[in-house]
C-alpha cells in the first residue's frame, strides 16, 4: 500500500449480482464531456461528439449526457454514479474510438472501481464454517478451575527434574529396597 492509497475510499471486492435479477438499472447516472472547440488535444472528443455521441445517447437512455465546451482546456469525461461516486477521466489526445471504449466502461461498471482501496484481495460472506476463533477456543480445561497466581502453571514447559529431587527419589527407593530385604530375611 503506497501513500497515494491513503485518501482513497476503502472497500471490499463485491459483485453486483443483484442488479439484473428483476430488471437492470444502469448505475451510471450522468456523464459530462468537457472539451475545447479549438485545441488539438480535444480533437478526438470533437470527432466523437460529431459522429458517435447521438448514437451513444440513443443506446443509453438512462444516462444523462452533458456537453461542456471550455476554451483552451484539455478534454475530460466526468461520470456520476447512482451510489454517489464521481469519476474524473482526463482524455487529452484521445481518439474517438478510445473515448467510446472508455464511455462503454463507465456505462457498464457498477461504481467507481479504481477510486476504492481494496482492503483485502478476497471477500466472503461466510468467513469460517467451524466458527471464528475466540480466546477461549483450544484452551486447556484445567485453566477453568485454576486460581491465579498459580505456581504449578507458571513452571517452564521443559523443566527437568532437579538434582535435589533426583536425590530424594533415590533415597526413597533405597529405603523401600531395604524394607523389602528385611522382610525377605
Amino acid at each position: 500500500m503506497s501513500n497515494s492509497h491513503l485518501f482513497l475510499k476503502p472497500g471490499f471486492i463485491k459483485v453486483p449480482l443483484q442488479n439484473g435479477v428483476g430488471r437492470y438499472v444502469c448505475q451510471l447516472q450522468r456523464v459530462v464531456l468537457k472539451f475545447c472547440k479549438n485545441h488539438g488535444s480535444s480533437r478526438g472528443m470533437r470527432d466523437f461528439i460529431e459522429s458517435d455521441l447521438v448514437n451513444f445517447a440513443m443506446d443509453n437512455p438512462a444516462v444523462v449526457v452533458y456537453l461542456k465546451p471550455r476554451r483552451h482546456r484539455s478534454a475530460v469525461i466526468k461520470a456520476e454514479y447512482l451510489n454517489g461516486d464521481q469519476q474524473w477521466l482526463g482524455c487529452k489526445n484521445f481518439t474517438k474510438e478510445e473515448i467510446l471504449k472508455w464511455l462503454n466502461l463507465l456505462v457498464t461498471q457498477s461504481q467507481y472501481h479504481t477510486g476504492t482501496r481494496i482492503r483485502k484481495l478476497w471477500h466472503t460472506d461466510n468467513p469460517s464454517i467451524q466458527g471464528p476463533w475466540t480466546p477461549f477456543t483450544f484452551r486447556d480445561p484445567k485453566l477453568n478451575l485454576a486460581s491465579f497466581p498459580n505456581e504449578e502453571l507458571a513452571k517452564p514447559q521443559d523443566s527437568n527434574e532437579t538434582n535435589h529431587e533426583a536425590l530424594i527419589e533415590l533415597f526413597k527407593k533405597q529405603k523401600l529396597d531395604d524394607l523389602e530385604q528385611r522382610r525377605a530375611e
Binding site: 491465579f148 498459580n150 532437579t162
Partner: peptide
C-alpha cells in the same frame, strides 16, 4: 504479590516462566 482484587478477578491465564 499484592495485586488489587479487581485485577486478579480478571485473570484467566498464567504465562509460563522462562526459567525454573
Amino acid at each position: 504479590e499484592n495485586v488489587p482484587k479487581e485485577f486478579l478477578g480478571n485473570v484467566t491465564n498464567e504465562i509460563k516462566q522462562l526459567r525454573p
